[in-house]
Amino acid sequence: MSSETIDVRYVAQLARIELTDDEVERFGAQLGNLLDHVGRLAELDTASVPATAQVIESRNVLRDDVVRPSLDRETVLAQAPKRQGAFFRVPRIIAEAE
């Protein structure tokens, strides 16, 4: 696989990263190398291996429906880049509903 198949600008846009033309070229090549490396897995015969979504063997790790203390609001809002009163203040939400 090569960088030809990766739309670096699209991926950057999804990740909300601004790239210069030079970076698009450089990262494109690097991403291509990564995909080539991962692509080696395709050489293995996995016909008899069941698909998995997790490398850990555990299953059904659940917790009881019990309420635990939440954080203090001032502690929480102190982490916020911006706050207004009791709320997190965020850039205008650009929704489908715009």
Binding site: R89, V90, P91, R92, I93, A95
Partner: peptide, 9 residues
Amino acid sequence: IAGSAYSLV
């Protein structure tokens, strides 16, 4: 939403 400058969450 259209005319709002920011959102509170």
